[in-house]
Simulated scan of single mutants.
Amino acid sequence: MANQVEPKLIKPLYNELQKERFVTLATVDFETGGPNVSAISWVLAKNDETLYFAVDNRSRIVQNINSNKKVVLNIIANESTYSIAGEASVKSEKMEGVPLKLALIEISVKEVRDVMFYGSKIIVEPQYDKTYDKDAAARLDKQVMEAMKKA
């Protein structure tokens, strides 16, 4: 049975991408030409064809995207695992209203694929805990998400 492929985000994924969450991002490494995978959490679906995410503007992710725009964002949600392929670009090298030097990256969604192996479903989604000052983390998370919503 072939996995479902869509040209844009399905509604459950759009809804899940309205808040900070654990996702992985695959880029093409600018030095080796091989795959590079990173875990990120500041991600937002602007609409069903556009994703935003924020990373330190000195991140290898930024260098990789400047060299090759092709990316895949992986998300575990809706009892499954999805691969969201697209082309990324740096929308802003320094986000407004955020105390850190974060780049705002935009992904133009080209394909959404359910990549869960046949005959199974996710029963527990990944969770994480911030290991630094919880109040500072909450303030920063709110600032970053609000800045992405305004962009």
Rank of each mutant, 00 (worst) to 15 (best):
G97R: 06
K130F: 15
Y14N: 03
V62Q: 00
E49M: 00
N57C: 04
F117S: 05
P7S: 15
K142R: 14
E125I: 07
L140T: 03
K134E: 14
N36S: 15
M116N: 02
S89K: 12
N68Y: 11
I76P: 01
Y128S: 12
L44C: 00
D56P: 00
S120W: 09
V5Q: 09
A103T: 06
L140Y: 09
S67L: 08
P126N: 11
K8C: 05
V43A: 07
K69C: 02
V62Y: 01
A138Q: 07
N57V: 04
P99A: 06
A147K: 01
K121C: 09
K134L: 08
M145G: 05
T81R: 08
I84P: 01
N15A: 15
A26E: 14
E93M: 11
N64G: 03
L25V: 13
M116F: 06
W42K: 01
V112M: 10
V23G: 09
K94M: 13
A151H: 00
E20R: 14
K101W: 07
L73W: 01
I76N: 08
D114K: 09
N78R: 05
P12G: 01
Q127I: 12
P126R: 06
M148Q: 01
N47T: 00
L102V: 04
K130L: 08
V37I: 15
D114L: 05
P7R: 07
L13C: 09
M145E: 10
D129P: 00
V71G: 02
F22T: 15
A77P: 07
A39S: 13
K149S: 06
I40N: 02
K121V: 14
N64W: 06
K150W: 03
R113S: 04
K70E: 12
P7K: 09
F117C: 02
N47A: 00
V72G: 04
V98F: 03
V43C: 04
S108C: 05
E79V: 01
M148E: 04
R139K: 13
K121W: 10
E20D: 14
N15H: 14
P35K: 13
A88M: 12
Y52G: 02
N66Y: 11
L25Q: 12
K142W: 07
G119M: 12
A54G: 04
V71P: 01
E31A: 11
S120N: 10
I75E: 07
M116G: 03
V5H: 07
R139I: 08
A138W: 06
T32S: 15
K46N: 00
F30A: 15
G119Y: 11
E93Y: 02
S41G: 08
V124Y: 08
K150R: 13
W42A: 02
G34W: 15
V72E: 13
Q63G: 07
M1K: 01
M116R: 03
